[in-house]
Each structure stands twice: as C-alpha cells, then as structure tokens.
Design a protein around this nucleic acid. Sequence first.
DNA 1: GTTGAAACTTATTAAAC
DNA 2: GTTTAATAAGTTTCAAC
Lengths: 151, 151
Amino acid sequence: MTNVVLDGTDRKIVAVLAREGRISNLELADRIGLSPTPCSRRVKRLEEEGVIMGYGARINPAAMGQSISVMVQVRLSQQAPADIDAFMSAVQRLPQITECLLVTGDLDYVLKVQTRDVEALRDFVLKELKAIPSVAETSTMLILDVAKSTV
Amino acid sequence: MTNVVLDGTDRKIVAVLAREGRISNLELADRIGLSPTPCSRRVKRLEEEGVIMGYGARINPAAMGQSISVMVQVRLSQQAPADIDAFMSAVQRLPQITECLLVTGDLDYVLKVQTRDVEALRDFVLKELKAIPSVAETSTMLILDVAKSTV
DNA sequence: GTTGAAACTTATTAAAC
DNA sequence: GTTTAATAAGTTTCAAC
C-alpha cells in the first residue's frame, strides 16, 4: 500500500463521506469549508489514491427479514493450502456470511453471519458450516445490539 | 421494526446499491432491467421504509495510516446500568473503536479497533480500554486479513 | 409497469484572479 | 486556494399510454 499524505481537509472529507456517501459535492464543500472546485478535486484524488475504495448503501438486515446476526469463531483442523482453499470457497459461496476475518489468537477465523431466524441459523451451522471438512470447531455468539458502527 | 415486503426487483436494487452506492438511477435501472421512473420510486420507497438506512464511503484504513486492525473481546466486571453507561460513553468517545457489538456467550462486547501501529494499540488497550473501571477482562485478536466483506 | 418531455439540480471543466 | 461561466449529465415530476 502506497502511503498517502492527508491533510486536515482531506480527513474532514473522508469523515463526511464515510457517513454520507451520497452527499452532493456542493454540500460537501460547504460542510468542510471549501469551494466546490477543489473539494471535487480532492474527492477524486482520494478515490484514485485508494483512500476511498468505493461507496455502498447501508442495508437494514432486519427490514429484509434477516433478523438474526451472529459472530461465529471458526477453528480449522487442517491448515494446508487445500483446506484453506476449501474453506474460503465455502465462505465466498454462502450468502449468510457477510464478513470473514482471518485473525490471530485462539481461533482462526471470525465470521459475521445473518439468517432469517434461529432455524435458519441452526441449518446454516449444522448443514453448511460444520459440513466443511476442514472446520474443526465453531463457537457462536448472538449479536444482541450494535452499540457503535462507523458503517 | 415494521416488516417490509420485498420482491425480486427490490432485492436486485438492494444488492446493487450495497456494492455501488453512488450509481446513477439511470444505470441502476438499466442494470436491474427496469426503466428509470419506477426504479427511482422503488429506491425512494426502500429508503423511506428503512431498508436502505443510508449511504457511506468505504474508507481504506491502511491508506490513512491506520494499519493495525484488531478484534477486542471485553468482559465487564459490573453490569449495573451505571457501569454499562460508563463503558458505552467511552466506546462512543474513542475514535479507535469503529464497531461495538453486544453479544451473548463468554464475553460481553466485541470491539473492532483500528490504530496507527502496535504502539498505538498498546497505548489504547492499556491506557484507554483497561482504564475504564467496569472493564474486567480483554482479549485481543489481530486481524491478519479480510477474506470477505459485504461492506 | 412503459416512454417522452420539461424544469430543476448537480457535476465538470475551463478561465480568470 | 477562490470565483464565475458554460457545457454536460442526472434527477424529478408530469402526462400519456
């Protein structure tokens, strides 16, 4: 990753766009105290430099009938490249998995999973996750509340 | 949460906007196979119904000099409302904490934390997190890779 | 649901300072 | 960096089908 020099104005832009990704350039410029022209240039530069990787809508899973959110910690029994590949392809394939992090510590992967209800979660864990040969151990924590989120 | 009925077209719209939040209505309509007018109406309806909660830019923390990402599991010693309030206000105050989830299981909260380097992480854990009186126990996992992300 | 057109708002670029 | 101006593009609303 090429390191990028960001001044205070750039950081203001990033902070605003992180929360309001669809704000118009005119309002963004007004918000950060800059005129539209250099504001637009800075945004384009931040996009080209990879500081801003893209934009996305924040979707409410509950409103879409996905009311169960869980964190699943997964330990793989085998760590050979073929085992990791098999696990990774399953992770990419399963739409219930919205996030997958490789972590240090006691467990190897942390997944964020969303399902319609507890039955769908049970089916997911038993029939999908534990069906992956390299998965040795899973531990599920139900997410009761999102207390802070920058997304 | 009021449950919303979404048809296949709505789900297509959500799927596209989740990935490309700044797509124009004309291109979105073309992408999902609908004309611009009803497409725009559907998007507005999805926003009003709370399915789409907002839009945001995807920021690359590494490009901003925040190269360390960790998951921190936190157990509170005291669960009285005052203790939870103290912890929550610290969570909101500390910019390193980008996500905070209340979970069931062994530990009470899971945090996603970003810092500039390991020294900043050490200072954060020792001087900020452990300084909160209600925090009894923390466990930190370094995030080595993001293998999947819907954001 | 579709198309088409008009009115309005932005974005983008260039030129000046 | 700023402002102004002009062109291009997108959004919104309306009518008619």
